[in-house]
Design a protein around this nucleic acid. Sequence first.
RNA 1: GGGGGCGUAGCUCAGCAUGGACAGAGCGCCGGCCCUCUAAGCCGGAAGCCGAGGGUUCGAAUCCCUCCGUCCCCGCCA
Length: 637
Amino acid sequence: MSYRELKSQVKQCVEAALDANGFPTIKFEPVSPPRPEFGDLSVAVALNLAGRLKMKPLDVAEHIVSKIVIPEGSLIQKCWVHPPGYVNFSSIYPQYAKQTILNTLREGAIYGRVNIGGGARIGIEHTSVNPNKALHYGHLRNVVLGDSIRRILSYAGYEAQTLNYIDDSGLQVADLIVGFRYAGFNPEPEGAEKYDHYCGDVVYVKVNVLYETRKDLAAAQKQVLREMEDHTSDTARLASKITLRILAEQLKTCWRIGARYDLLNFESHILQTRMWNDVFEQLKNRGLVEFANEGKYVGCWIVRVEGEYEGEEKVIVRSDGTATYIAKDIPYAAWKLGLIPDRFGYRVFTEQPDRSRLWSTTVGQGESNPPVFAPYSKAITVIDVRQGRLQRIIGRILSDLAGDAQVNRYIHLDYEIVSLSGKTVEELGLGAGDKQTVSMSGRRGIYVNADDVLDAVHRKAYAETKKRNPDEDDAWLHGTAEKIAVAAIRFELLKQDLDKTIVFDLERALDLEGETGPYLQYAYARAARIIEKAGSISSVDSADFSKLTDPSEVALVKEISKFDVVVEDAVTNLAPKVIARYLYNTVSLFNTFYERMPVLKEQDETLKAARLALIKAFQTVVKNGLNLLGIETPERI
RNA sequence: GGGGGCGUAGCUCAGCAUGGACAGAGCGCCGGCCCUCUAAGCCGGAAGCCGAGGGUUCGAAUCCCUCCGUCCCCGCCA
């Protein structure tokens, strides 16, 4: 907050000084300089103007500084020129510290909030895992990313809703039915195995192996698919039963990692409500699809996608009249943006662990007063980068339909995939780890289940926590271990840039030290302990913030003051990573402070009070920030 | 063949959009630190022609071009 204020004051000062010198106005942004002795903010305009003015950068800077008028009551203390031509600004530190800390404490849980959304409803689709298997670790990147985006956008003043698309009528589901009916797989797992694990790890994988040798099963698959098309058939009912049961298990995993949803969209409902017909009619009327009378796609309806690629065309309706995969996505996307009538009914599906209601689409009436879902002002679809081409085509079709090519309301939030390290592949017996990394494949059984990773990290965290808290009971230990496990996994998946592949390595996943979620939680808990031991004696009123002069204190104060700017960055770039990096940095500064400054031993009560307030402000930032990443902050770990 | 991503320390990555002040972390390695605020920590050290070459610029890890390596996408599959 204070940082934003300081920055805007600096900017105005410099703009006025440029004007006073008769220098041209150019775009510039004050930035945090790399070293403390360069001040709190720095401006490089002189360097950029020098060429244009045919002057030496240093002279330009001198001219600027000579005309700078520091406004009364601002946070700016002074400014000066630094070679080769920077204009550096420092803040009035005691005031800056006081304002930052008090403001943070006053705002508490809403510190860092920025109103960018203005209440606009925004739809975020994520997870959308086929309901024929358990979530594997790669799916978790999607879930955690989508869920964090939801948290961040809500914090930024959007009415963010999360949608989970359930493809309950596809090929993968048919494979399970083939397994149960024609390949002799037991319809129930042995023992206590989770149903989604059983279907994915055993039935789905093995049926796909069997297809290679048993031609009768391939025929059976076609038969099953045909039967599923009639939603009143026994096969369709069985498919529905299986998918709902797997979905229930998948949701447990998603909730476990901290996600929640607003609505489940079932593909079968989109088919039954014939929403495709609505879209197809519009596409035909507007000439956005063409019937191919010749060429390799003769007899098909195709879309042409003008743009980066010349003459790109994509079949959306086959010559036998059936819709392709991409075509099935169009009505759903069009529904999100309100481009076709909403033909869904809605009903409560279940209650989630956070007590919120999870709704589902339905065919027919539904409940009388459901929440408002579509249309969304913007629809964000979280899917990995391999879907990029199709998503681009869908986006193009939608903006053509909406007639607003300029305003892109359909956003594909893409991210690189998660692969497995060769070492881990070998360790888990998933194949020969001769390569550096191996791509995951659900069908070939090359993956690690999300639940299994969570369990493994949980066990490790449990052992570590028990070591440090030997007197605590098992329930507390498990509760804490679970929070740590979630923190470790979520942070690991979020801190990395979206266009970089994440390589899952079992050993590294179990590392709870260094740049990890537990490191952040640990610092928070350390802070909590100081506050706890300090008791309630010292009040903020007696604090003398001008005494927070140790470099570790100054650095921490200044970092805390930047939180809201960081949140804004994360919002505009849809980048939880930015928050993760910032928090790690902040926590790291706190740890330095923690080692240097024995707070409770401090004799000077006014300084002690200031430090305690600083610690509380630090906690506020970490708590709010981690909350945006879906990571909890236990008081003790 | 066409399109796209990535290439920064032994390993995993920040920084690149909006070019500037000695290129930063974590892991690993070497050496210190429990003095009752939790050592899941801290401090110090070794380690980098920022893939290669060219260009633009007063200035390039950052922008442009070419090349190399690597991964992905390009089906009347989903």
